[in-house]
């Protein structure tokens, strides 16, 4: 049987904005209890109030093919087969390219530490490996955040939209965005009203960079041949010119030219 890949379904219509997810996240991941108003190195999930009294969680989306993972030059960020995108500080250089690459502005950096790490939600990887749910889903009193296999969650989301089309905007955010994410959203209103990035492509962002990087062997081969051939050609032209001059000025001078 294939390995189960997990994720979260966050239903904005059910969220009451109590913040229990953030609190439990803090406790489980040993983070200082103060909850910031945006994602920071010490706050891995926040609930923000939007217009119409809607509440929206922000957290790592655990992309199926994450840009941060592709961008990390030392593979400090990896996508595990169970779904979480996790971080290994022992190899991280702290270049912060992951932060530039992430389309959701998720990875955060410890700006005031001499030994800084990249910090973000890890989808409670240790708990997931034990067969438990994430801290946020466990704490949610209204099941606005549900933990499960991604495939199951997609079915669940589709069923909810189908059962109550008036309640939901007909889109599962994260189903196809940047090639799919493990954390998906349902909303009563279009996602741009929730300040979600709706300009995202429907394929992994790493496709763009890989399409370019793939050309490296070709560039080296073509460039090498071009430069090598140019060298030979220009040298040869020089030699011919010299030989011609030598012939013109007579054989006795030829020796000086070499």
């Amino acid at each position: 049987m294939a390995i189960k890949s997990f994720g979260l379904l966050i239903d904005v219509t059910r969220c009451i904005g109590c913040g229990a997810c953030s609190e439990n996240c803090k406790e489980i991941n040993d983070l200082p209890p103060e909850i910031d108003d945006k994602l920071t190195a010490e706050t891995w999930t926040v609930v923000r109030e939007k217009s119409d009294g809607l509440h929206v969680r922000d957290l790592c989306r655990h992309c199926v093919e994450p840009a941060c993972v592709a961008s990390c030059l030392v593979a400090a960020l990896t996508k595990t087969e169970h779904g979480p995108v996790v971080y290994d500080k022992s190899v991280c250089i702290g270049c912060r390219y992951c932060m530039v690459a992430c389309p959701f502005q998720v990875p955060c950096f410890e700006w005031h530490s001499p030994n800084p790490r990249i910090r973000k939600c890890i989808l409670c990887e240790p708990r997931v490996l034990e067969g438990k749910s994430t801290g946020c889903a466990e704490a949610c009193p209204t099941e606005a955040t549900v933990f499960g296999e991604r495939e199951t969650l997609v079915e669940m989301a589709r069923a909810r939209i189908k059962a109550d089309p008036d309640r939901y905007h007909n889109h599962i955010y994260g189903l196809d965005e940047v090639g799919g994410t493990a954390v998906m959203f349902l909303s009563p209103v279009p996602f741009e009203d929730l300040d979600f990035n709706t300009d995202l492509v429907n394929y992994p962002l790493s496709d763009i960079t890989w399409k370019i990087l793939r050309q490296v062997p070709t560039i080296v081969a073509v460039g090498g041949v071009f430069l090598g051939a140019s060298y030979w050609l220009f040298k040869r032209r020089d030699e011919v010119k010299k030989a011609d001059q030598a012939v013109e000025s007579g054989p006795e001078k030829e020796a000086d030219d070499v």
Binding site: L73, T209, W210, L213
Partner: peptide, 11 residues
């Protein structure tokens, strides 16, 4: 020791 050839920054 930990190359990620998919990263432009690695190149």
């Amino acid at each position: 020791t930990n190359p990620n050839i998919h990263s432009p920054l690695y190149e």
